[in-house]
Amino acid sequence: MIVLPETVDEVVVKLLRLANTRLSHDIGWALEAAAGWETNDIAYSQLGSIMDNVKKAEFLGRPMCQDTGIPVFYVSGSFDSSISEKITEGVRRATKEIPLRPNAVDPITRENSGDNLGEGMPIIHYRPTDDEFIEITVLPKGAGSENMTKLAMLNPSEGIEGVKRFVIDSVLDAGGRPCPPTIVGVGIGGLSDTCVEMAKEALTVPLDVRNPDPVLDKLEEELFIALNSSGLGPMGLGGSSTVLGVRIKKAFCHTASLPVAVNIGCWATRRATARIMPNGTVEYIQGGE
């Protein structure tokens, strides 16, 4: 979808609307595939309500989940420092116009700012590149899945088996709380902070794109099979559709470390990307094409 010139704050409002009201195609397909292999009645009923809900949300233009989350932005390409102000304005407007649930509170007083803004908000990751366009991806993160985030600083001797064990335990211990079937974002390596960041950013990678790293690709598949054989099922009520996908990112780490992080995305992993061209036209993208 290409749209004529818009200001960045308008683009942000549109991105948040798109992400919240329309599930990415790749996740929709993954849900249908899961319903196809599910044999447990209760699990099937849960997948049915999810898919029914996705259709109604898109049709009515309403957020598919009431927890519209805390939006995380990834900005790349050519931009200047004014972009942060524009994104902030976009969040303020989107909260009112869509509407989004005001979720941002002061961590000490628990006072709600009412507009999803406040100290440290919105969260924006900047990656300047030499491209002529600006690409903005939004990933609104709900608390149900975000609260299940785990980081382990494993001993290097625990190796890949230790990594698998940790990912499987993290997903199964989370049970029904992050609204399975989930997408499991995994970070391997880096330092503690970058490891968690990778696990989260992994959730922005569409499910219908293979991991370019053959080792990670194989690991994703192994974890996918192990988790879907666990019996946890949708909402933790039993069944064989526990995860819709596993996405892994890695980075080099210290020779004495093996950090692993798990950041879970619920079935409602909302994401959308906008590419703003130098002439001002905008292309909106959801999922791999």
Binding site: D52, N53, P63, G176, P234, L237, W267
Partner: peptide
């Protein structure tokens, strides 16, 4: 009673 997590529009109905 377990409601389907995230099925916010269907449940709102």
């Amino acid at each position: 009673l377990a409601a389907t997590g995230g099925a916010a529009v269907t449940l709102a109905e």
